[in-house]
């Protein structure tokens, strides 16, 4: 498969999928092609779609790639498809999620110590939305549940990996549940 064929195939593939697709997944059908070449083909496509006034862009999300619409056209798209504005997370939910994202793995009382208020019902909501997940229990008094970001987290916020979280103050992302991050690194 030469470079132009590869690009052609990947463009078509990205057009058909609805979930971010990783380089490893793409390689399942073209084993002979090195991951590096696949990445190069995607970057080249990204460059093309990144040009002026294109309606589609190729974005890296949750360790994979996805074709998405350009944000500028959203008012008309929403009107055409009659899309209601999606439900937003509440402030307490966002704060709790931020604490978990930056400090995972973390237990409930550690979150509450930072927020200065109980987070029981917020945790439940976040778990239901798969924005966080339980990661077992800590070997401490009462065996508290350990929390980390869930599978929907990266996608919900359009992040390529946990490393893509912006630096705030002197917050650093601990490499707790960075599975997506790991996979991502292998791709490179």
């Amino acid at each position: 498969m030469d470079d132009s064929e590869l690009r052609q195939f990947i463009e078509a593939l990205l057009f058909t999928v609805h979930d971010p697709i990783s380089i490893d997944r793409i390689r399942e059908v073209i084993e002979e092609v090195e991951p590096k070449r696949i990445r190069e083909a995607i970057v080249s496509l990204q460059g093309e779609y990144g040009g002026d006034k294109r309606g589609i862009c190729i974005t890296e999300i949750a360790g994979g790639f996805l074709m998405r619409t350009a944000p500028e056209v959203s008012p008309w798209l929403k009107k055409f498809h009659q899309i209601e504005t999606r439900e937003k997370l509440s402030k307490p939910a966002l704060e709790t999620l931020a604490i978990i994202a930056y400090k995972q793995p973390i237990i409930r009382c550690e979150i509450e110590a930072i927020r200065g208020v109980g987070v029981g019902h917020v945790l439940r909501t976040l778990l239901e939305k798969k924005l966080i997940k339980t990661m077992g229990r800590k070997k401490a008094v009462g065996a508290p549940i350990i929390y980390g970001t869930g599978e929907e987290f990266l996608r919900h916020f359009g992040l390529a990996s946990l490393a893509g979280l912006p630096e705030v103050g002197n917050l650093e992302v601990k490499d707790g549940s960075g599975r997506a991050q790991e996979e991502n690194r292998q791709d490179r």
Binding site: L66, T69, S74, K88, E95, A98, H156, G158, G169, L171
Partner: peptide, 26 residues
């Protein structure tokens, strides 16, 4: 607490951006 509040604000911005971006529905 203020650090995480800022981080939450950033996530909120990102969430807002995501609401204007669409991918192929499953």
């Amino acid at each position: 607490y203020r650090k995480y509040k800022e981080a939450a604000g950033d996530l909120e911005q990102r969430e807002l951006c995501q609401q204007n971006v669409f991918s192929r529905p499953p």
